[in-house]
Design a protein around this nucleic acid. Structure first.
Lengths: 148, 148
DNA sequence: CTTGAATTGTTTAAGTTTAAACTATCAGCC
DNA sequence: GGCTGATAGTTTAAACTTAAACAATTCAAG
């Protein structure tokens, strides 16, 4: 529902796009991540496991950059994953400021088991759009999302 | 950066669109809402003031629906706004389960003062896209975001 | 060597968010 | 009237998030 009155035509158009973008993301993430509750995983925890799965061991700073979250948050997330033995920290001897955070076997097993469902959720949801539309959406979001 | 290996072509395409969408929204909201900190307003508080500004007095349930947040959250948000005398609750005599939540004069003044900056932030950010692209983005997000 | 700046990660305090249990109110039905 | 179910809002506990202050480590310049 477009908001009313204030602003010129150009602002109105930008607002409409903005509102649609936010609501869409909220709806889609809510739908695609709902299944994580069954594994007692928060979105941040899942994102961390996923990053380690795809990229291999990372230091916390790189995890934070990847998830767009604060360093303190990553400390908490990794703490909680470590308590469940899904990841482990290893001090890097060559630079003892770093931890290398890596999946354990249990963590590997968990993320391997969950990923298909997650990807399927996303693919099913995105299938509302044609392949061409998916590419269009990707292009527009990348253009709009460039940091600055 | 596209993730690698798992999944067929179609899943890969959906994933790419999904990741771009999420990162874009994160980047854009972070940029457009940064100015709210100066007024000590959270995004939820601002969203509530904005909804009341555009739509007039609402009950908490309608605010929750509009913001896509839980009812308990709206109670907290309205509590905090009420403490600052930016909104006020009025019991509806015709159905005493409802509160009508409305902007006070102070709240009206605040949101009126802040909105131009907020809209300008959005318009400036969205100006990275051409008018046609903004409409395309809106259309795609609306199509993708339909609840289900 | 040593001083100091920069970087990594931790802690703390405060605020946000949710789900679930709870109270209050309403509407329909006997 | 009194019961029943539905709805609006509140409360509580737990989890998540952040900014800011902090400690540990590295590295470069003197």
């Amino acid at each position: 529902m477009p908001t009313h009155h204030q602003g010129n035509k150009q602002e109105q158009q930008a607002l409409n796009a903005y509102i649609s973008l936010l609501r869409c993301t909220e709806t889609v993430t809510s739908a695609t991540c709902r299944h994580l509750a069954a594994e007692k995983l928060s979105v941040g925890q899942f994102g961390t496991l996923e990053a380690l799965y795809h990229l291999g061991p990372l230091c916390q700073r790189d995890i934070a950059k990847k998830l767009l979250k604060s360093g303190g948050n990553v400390t908490t997330v990794v703490d909680n994953l470590e308590k469940r033995a899904l990841v482990e920290r290893r001090r890097m001897p060559e630079d003892r400021r770093y931890y290398s955070v890596a999946l354990t076997d249990v963590g590997q097993e968990l993320i391997t088991r969950i990923m298909p469902r997650h990807i399927d959720n996303i693919a099913t949801r995105l299938a509302v759009l044609s392949p061409q539309e998916q590419d269009d959406l990707r292009r527009l979001c990348r253009k709009l999302g460039l940091t600055g």
